[in-house]
């Protein structure tokens, strides 16, 4: 279970910021004053640190942080 979570946290930033780009490459809808593509990139500036933090906590709880 923890392993699965770890894999999700590691791959999410890559999938969101590289793989799915062709699908978010659009202007509408405009959210918080940002066209969708820019909103999406902005969102992942904020979400990526949470992925890193999650990985850090997982490693810490497993004691695999050297």
């Amino acid at each position: 279970m923890k392993k699965l979570l770890l894999i999700v946290l590691i791959s999410a930033p890559f999938i969101a910021q590289l793989v799915v780009l062709p699908f978010v490459n659009r202007i509408d809808p405009i959210i918080f004053g940002l066209p969708f593509l820019q909103f999406w990139l902005f969102l992942w500036i904020v979400l990526t640190p949470f992925c890193t933090l999650g990985i850090y906590q997982l490693q810490k709880s497993e004691g695999s942080l050297d």
Partner: peptide, 19 residues
């Protein structure tokens, strides 16, 4: 235009990978 935004995923991922 928006090609300039490549710098955003680039640097966000660079820090993530650096971890």
């Amino acid at each position: 235009g928006s090609l300039a935004f490549f710098a955003i995923p680039y640097s966000v991922l660079a820090y993530f990978i650096s971890y």
